[in-house]
Design a binder for these strands. Structure first.
Lengths: 139, 139
DNA sequence: TTAGTTGCAAAGGCTTTGCACGCGC
DNA sequence: GCGCGTGCAAAGCCTTTGCAACTAA
């Protein structure tokens, strides 16, 4: 489960109660949370943790390459702890929920050289859009 | 060139100098601009146009389905006037520039039913990440 | 004419930052 | 003990909104 925490420890990252809680919260959910949602869940375990620390901590995990930041159509970014497992995202257009999904084949191969315009292309991600079961039922 | 303006007129959208200028600016660039960049270019043609109007206008074009809003890792959203032409995006991780590119095949078909988790999936987009020629040279 | 659009300025949501205190190593 | 991490509150950036004046059809 807490694979993320493990990886951070192995890297010799200075561990504090706050950082541990943020890592646990992120890794414990199969959907991807916003910074504020991470903060809310973190407060349950460590009431005095501040929003600033959650933001700082998430930012550092992203810099370390252990967490991926997901831009969204809604305002707040979401955070994905599975940075080392290749996967794609399924996004609900209505509520913004993001789920990991898996497809076969590497999309990188689908971009021919003449469509690269001199860019050094290092990654590709697919985002599937639709409605989650709950929102489809409500609509 | 100004295909977007054409489409908006055909829909009977009430046309004002501000709306025309926003449409012209958006359609005139082969990269995708932020709202503020659109405003800056719009001011060159119509000095008294306000930021609020640019935001409102872009938002309405998105609601009409004539422009696509692109979430980015950087803070500001970018706007894509080619809503009716299937294409993907090539993003520079450093400066945030977005370019349209074309691949073969429809990514929607790559998501098997058992990976849809009850979602009604209606669209898919691919984002390629890398460094644009300028940023690669600067790095 | 008149309903819809604009500009202004203020408010709003999300995120970052400066600084003094506190804690992991 | 040292240096990095934390919390607080304030600032910052991007965006939205309320309202009175204006204008396209």
């Amino acid at each position: 489960m807490s694979d993320l925490l493990e990886r951070l420890r192995e890297r010799g990252w200075r561990m504090t109660a706050q950082r541990r809680v943020v890592a646990e919260v992120l890794d414990g959910e199969h959907i991807h949370l916003t910074a504020d949602e991470v903060h809310a869940r973190a407060v349950d375990r460590l009431p005095e943790i501040s929003r600033a620390t959650v933001y700082n901590t998430l930012g550092e995990m992203v810099s370390l390459g252990e967490v991926t930041e997901l831009a969204t159509d809604h305002r707040a970014k979401r955070y994905d702890p599975n940075a080392h497992r290749p996967h794609q995202h399924l996004v609900c257009a209505r509520c913004g929920t993001i789920r990991d999904v898996h497809t076969s084949g590497d999309p990188l191969n689908q971009l021919p050289a003449e469509e690269r315009f001199g860019f050094t292309v290092s990654g590709a991600e697919i985002t599937y859009r639709g409605l989650c079961p709950d929102c489809a039922a409500a609509a």
